[in-house]
Amino acid sequence: MFIAVASGKGGTGKTTIATSLALAIKEKYKVQYIDCDVEEPNGHIFLKPEFTYKESVTVQIPQINLSRCIFCGRCAEICAFHALVVLPGNVLSFVELCHSCGGCMHFCPEKAISPAEQEIGWIEGGLADGIEFIQGRLKIGVAVSPPLIQAVKNKRLSGAAVIADVSPGTSCPVIKAVEGADFCILVTESTPFGLHDLELAFGMIQKLKVPGGVVINRSDGKDEDAERFCKEKGIPLLMKFPFSRDIAVNYAKGLPLLAIKPQWKEKLIALWEKCERMGRN
C-alpha cells in the first residue's frame, strides 16, 4: 500500500500527518517513510533516522563533440526546454534546463552528442525506530527534481505500508511523487488560501486517477467551505485535527504530533485503515 500525503498549499501539515501516521501504525505494519520533498526534506527532523547509506543520483546530459558537429541546429530545434543553442562554430548548453529526454542525441545526424552523467542529488536512508526511512536531497543549484523523486520512489519496498511526504504545490515534483500512489491524502486548512489550493490539488489527483480524501488540519471548527467542497466533489472528508497551540509549540521543537498527542494514536490508525479501504488494490 502506497499512500502519498500532499496538500496544494504549503504549511498545512503534510509532514505532521505523514510522520505521525508512520509512528502510529508501525507496530501493526512494516512501515516505510519516503520523503519525496527533495528540495527541503524535513521528515527526518521528527523521525530521527540513523542514516546508514547514501547513494548518488545522476541524470544524463548532452555532451557535444565539436569535431563531429556540423552546426546544423537540429538539436536546438527539437529541445523543448531550450537547453541547447547552436551558433556558427559553437554549441552552448544550459544543462540546468535539460530534462534528460535524450532527444538531441537521438536526432543528431552526425552522432556528435553523447550522454554524460551529471549528479543531481542523493538518496539517504536508514532505520528510524523500526521505520524504514528514505529521503532524497536535491543538490543546490539543480532545478529539475523529478528524476531524483523517481529514484526515491524506486526504493519502495513491496509489501510495506509506504507513506510518501510530498512537496507543496501541484507542479512536476508533486505529480512525480503522487503518480502511481494507491491513495492520496490531501491535507488542508480552513482558510481561503487552503481551499483554493485544495481545489488545484484535487484536480491534479483526478487527472492522475489516484483516489484521495481530505484531512482538515488545525481545524477551528469553522470548516464549512472545505466541507462543502468535499461534498460537492464527492471527495471523502477523512478526518479533522483540531487546532492546538500546544502542538504548534512542540512541533517547533521537533516533536512529532504523536509524541504531543499520544491519545490520537487510534485516530491515526483509523485514518490509515480508511485510506487502505478506499485505495487501489
Binding site: 526546454f81 531550450h82 543553442v85 551558433l87 544550459f94 534546463l97
Partner: peptide, 16 residues
C-alpha cells in the same frame, strides 16, 4: 510562448 528558456530561444532565433 516558450515554457522555459525563453531568452535562450529568442537569442537562437536572432542568431539564425
Amino acid at each position: 510562448s516558450a515554457g522555459g528558456g525563453a531568452g535562450i530561444h529568442t537569442a537562437q532565433e536572432l542568431v539564425n
